[in-house]
Amino acid sequence: MGRYRPPRKQGSCYITPEGEKALRAEVYQLWKIERPEVTAVVHEAAKNGDRSENGDYIYGKRRMREIDSRVRFLTKRLDSVEIVDRTPADKDIIYFGAWVTVEDEAESKQSYRIVGPDEFDLASNKLSMDSPLAKALLGKRVEDEILFKTPEGQRELYISEVWYEKS
């Protein structure tokens, strides 16, 4: 038996059209391409006899469980998310999907896009709307100052620019 892990808190149910497309592509990749390949390997390994010492069989079955679990999660998640594909009427206020440029005290600028929890990626400046920074940004305007908590303590930023991409 594995160790008990309490269920994770459900993330926000919003997603951009690009994020939804990426999740659907992942489901397709796993279900239509990767799973048939793993199934073929497991089938061939099962023909070899003793399965208890057959690495291809053991690891293939494990990978199939991982794929099935991920596909099940993604399918349920895609059924429950709401795709936000429209820009707001007031483009001066920060809403979901906005690109925001913030400055710190040293006048160092950083831009982020506020996206859903399923598509955040700090390497490409996509910030989850459930993060402390995004929560502090939502509903604010250009030239507002925000204060939010980080592991290092309180941090203050200045909002210098807000824009939305065309859908």
Rank of each mutant, 00 (worst) to 15 (best):
K109I: 03
Y95A: 03
A106V: 08
E105V: 13
G97P: 06
E103C: 12
I93C: 09
I94Y: 12
D118H: 14
A123L: 12
D104H: 02
K91F: 01
G97T: 11
D92M: 07
V102M: 07
Y95T: 11
D121S: 11
L122K: 03
R113N: 05
L127Q: 00
F96M: 06
R113V: 12
P117N: 12
F120L: 03
E103L: 14
K109Y: 04
L122A: 03
D92I: 01
E105A: 15
M129D: 07
S111L: 05
D92S: 15
K126G: 00
I114M: 07
I93A: 07
N125D: 07
D104A: 04
K91Q: 15
I94V: 12
E105R: 15
Y95E: 08
V115W: 03
S108K: 15
G116Q: 05
P117G: 12
N125P: 01
V100F: 08
K91C: 06
D130G: 09
A98E: 04
D130K: 10
G97I: 10
K126P: 00
G97N: 11
K91H: 05
G97K: 08
E107V: 08
D130V: 11
A98N: 05
S111M: 10
V102W: 01
L127V: 02
L122Q: 04
S131N: 03
I114R: 01
Y112L: 05
R113A: 07
A123V: 11
I94E: 09
V115L: 03
W99V: 14
M129A: 06
S108D: 07
S128G: 13
K126L: 15
I93E: 09
E103V: 04
G116P: 14
R113F: 02
